[in-house]
Design a protein around this nucleic acid. Structure first.
Lengths: 241, 241
DNA sequence: AGTCGACCGACAGGAAAACGACAGGCCCGC
DNA sequence: GCGGGCCTGTCGTTTTCCTGTCGGTCGACT
């Protein structure tokens, strides 16, 4: 199933002074089968890093005591090479650049979408796993998504997707053949705090379908790849005959 | 049998200002072997959450004193990660509920069907039981229902069921080989307050049978999977020879 | 053979989903 | 700084298909 086979569960440390955010990330990670702990301050983070020995760290730059960079510095100085993904506020453009140059492995601006965060964490983990890491390619029926190249193909044909379409498709592919409710899709693919309870999901699915169909090998109408489960949600899977 | 093996009984706290509703839920839960207590206000709920230490909470959003989100906040702030399933009015605050399925909680609009509520509670419990949770698959004869993928198969063939058909079948499978009266099925699968004392159940069973038969491995007529117990109800089981 | 319950075809009302058209916003190039 | 194009989401209409009612027929039990 997962490409990044690990014998042990991934251990994630989430550092954010806003407990709801930290918990959100931890919860989602646990659903993926990871172990996750949270810290709400730099001090706590450093202590936990020593005890818990995480495989990866999510680190907010805005902390009450030591700031994110400080935490990173002290982590490095204590000799750990654990990869770090930063979280920064929307307009901290300066922070972004700094974040990358200061030894972080990736960053994401708040508010973020949880699936995107998880995807980045997986990527960073994969890369840091050592040389010759495997590419991550999702595959469902004749659909393939190369997460590294950010390339989606149906059979041989390559499709060009917008960012939102890409994210929705990735989520569907990753969970396939599970049926996902519109609420789940909205909650995972859109930024937390997104107000719209409208029909955005339907719309994106509709657009996705068109692109997928255009690239279908049998120009006629094979069964649609994205199925509607009326009154419930959507699933990506071979249709039942 | 059950996938969510627990040594101790599940402890459920039901919070709803409408006592009949709260009792309905509590009763059904107790019937499933859970321990259940009810609260009719936010204050009472918070007190009980401390004393009773529930494993899961059903929480109406419309409460006389604190509102549902307030209760959730205070629960979380007191450090408990207990999962919550919300109840909301049909067109009331349905939009403010966004963000729940991401944190692992869930919601249901009133009026709901008790089996659906129980199913969601079981799902949320299973997921919060820790990393690497098991999928829930019901199995009766050559019928399998994967509750996570929402996929039903007869042998190899996958059937596509409407929401109502799916719910009735799930109830039958879960209780198999017990004989269920039409009234029981109506009471559990349809929303409480449903007026129809009509023959809906017969009708859905009839439709279900057809779909089940079409997917039967022996194209001829093996005994039907859903048996009629004349004058009483239905049961899902291998026919006695 | 009669009676009563069950089965199921046909239909209609309505709810959910699909999707066309449009508008605001963002980014990019000039 | 300005214009243009693309992406995204809102609105409203159309389409799909799910659900329950009615009633005729069938089958079982007496």
């Amino acid at each position: 199933m997962a490409q990044y086979e690990r014998v042990e569960k991934v251990r994630l440390l989430v550092v954010d002074d806003d407990p709801p955010i930290a918990d959100l990330v931890a919860t989602v990670a646990r659903y993926e089968g990871w172990e996750a702990v949270t810290a709400n301050s730099g001090e706590q983070a450093l202590r936990l890093a020593g005890d818990f020995r995480p495989d990866i760290v999510v680190l907010d730059l805005m902390l009450p005591d030591v700031d994110g960079f400080g935490v990173l510095d002290r982590l490095r100085r204590s000799g750990t090479m654990v990869p770090v993904v930063f979280l920064t506020a929307r307009d901290g453009v300066a922070d972004r650049v700094a974040g990358l140059t200061r030894g972080g492995d990736d960053y994401l601006v708040k508010p973020f979408a949880v699936e995107e965060l998880m995807a980045r964490l997986r990527t960073v983990l994969r890369r840091s796993a050592g040389p010759g890491f495997q590419r991550s390619v999702l595959r469902v029926a004749d659909l393939t998504m190369d997460e590294d190249a950010r390339e989606v193909r149906r059979g041989e044909r390559r499709l060009s997707l917008t960012p939102t379409e890409y994210e929705v498709l990735r989520y569907l592919m990753r969970k396939s053949p599970t049926v996902l409710t519109k609420a789940q899709i909205l909650d995972h693919v859109w930024e937390y705090g997104f107000g719209g309870r409208s029909n955005v999901v339907e719309l994106v699915v509709s657009r996705l379908r068109r692109k997928l169909d255009e690239a279908a090998p049998d120009a006629g109408d094979g069964e649609p790849l994205i199925q509607t489960v009326r009154g419930f949600g959507y699933a990506l899977r071979q249709a039942p005959r």
